[in-house]
Design a protein around this nucleic acid. Structure first.
Lengths: 205, 205
DNA sequence: CTAATTAGGAAATGATCGTTTCCAAATCAA
DNA sequence: TTGATTTGGAAACGATCATTTCCTAATTAG
């Protein structure tokens, strides 16, 4: 999936890379999240990545390559954190609440204003070529599917009634998470978002 | 609220304007909605507005001026359509459903991919100066407040229970509408969005 | 009429954009 | 060693960006 240029774990030949690739991507994804693809200039990126533009282009080919690598990095990091929280609770219903709380916690204060790279990329979908757009759409679909899987789990373990339609509920909760991220851009408090989670959990019966 | 340059209804002196201001703004807001503020170039805008850049700068001062005028135009047009739908139904609860359906109808197909100017502007909030950002935040707040008012109306006319907390429910439904607009960017069907509305209405008891 | 004023529009402006080029430095293979 | 290869980084590139300038056209005021 990643390009040949990126994953040289053991650089057999040539001068070795002196910067941390993932650390650089963390800087890049912060810029992309906050400003969007187009408004994130190479200058913005090189500054946040602590690299010169030459090194950036050597490592990622072009701006699109930086974005796609940062996008994957973002998803991996976020998924790891979420997975840790899901593992901490038992029932399917509790996992659903944990997932919603995960989004709520990300949607307030400074992290709320920084935003979600998947949401902002979906918002900017028209700016990308078909291949990149497909990756963004796929990431959204996976996030929605994850909610659906938790609902199925809850119905299997009895924590969620089998009478509710999992698909439409998953879609509804997914929309809610995306909306929390947008609302978070305008500056929200922890309690405001927590109350949204409590309210939404009334749908998960 | 609008600047002196714009609302010259009766141009006392000088050559009269030969283009329709609101028609031009309709073109501009379509570009801003679909591409976002930064990615909407003056070339994109002049093409969509059927104007030369000179005329654009005469009428709106700068790109920021075009955006702010288009933003207000968008809100006015959308509010008019929404108000028409709200007037068509009776109870507060039915008005809430109508509002959610209004967003759902806008979030599928082509209009879904075009997106909402308020949502995309909130997403790009970091790109604007403080004054413009405040206008965007205010627009979001008004949209949330509108839902709250409908909930209060429903509680007054008995169509919504007085035991539910209107503030947190309004915030939840607001997040849902914003999220529907984001989900709509990735391409959704009418039925998918309609099901989300049905599901959300279970919260409005 | 003339003067003042404003719109329309082409062309030019300086800044910034993403990207490439070029060269020195650092590594491995031989 | 020597050659091949890759990185680091400064500088340059053409394209495009938002904006201004300048001139003509169209209108009102007097």
């Amino acid at each position: 999936m990643t390009t040949e240029t990126l994953d040289r774990k053991h650089p057999a030949r040539g001068r070795p890379r002196t910067f941390d690739l993932e650390l650089a991507l963390d800087g890049a994804l912060a810029v992309f999240s906050e400003r969007g693809y187009q408004a994130a200039s190479i200058s913005d990126l090189t500054e946040a990545m602590n690299l010169t533009s030459g090194s950036v282009y050597k490592a990622f080919k072009d701006k699109r390559g930086v974005f796609l690598a940062a996008f994957e990095r973002y998803r991996a990091v976020r998924l790891a954190v979420l997975q840790g929280r899901l593992d901490g609770v038992g029932s399917g219903r509790e996992k659903v609440r944990q997932l919603l709380s995960f989004y709520a916690d990300s949607s307030h204060g400074l992290s709320g204003k920084r935003g979600c790279l998947v949401v902002s990329s979906a918002n900017d979908l028209a700016l990308f070529d078909e291949e990149a757009a497909n990756q963004i759409r796929a990431a959204s679909a996976i996030n929605e599917k994850r909610i659906l899987d938790l609902l199925h789990l809850g119905q299997a373990d009895g924590s969620i009634s089998s009478s509710v339609d999992p698909e439409s509920l998953a879609r509804t909760l997914f929309c809610l998470t995306q909306g929390m991220r947008i609302a978070g851009k305008t500056g929200r408090g922890q309690e405001e978002m927590a109350a949204v989670v409590d309210r939404a959990m009334q749908l998960v019966t």
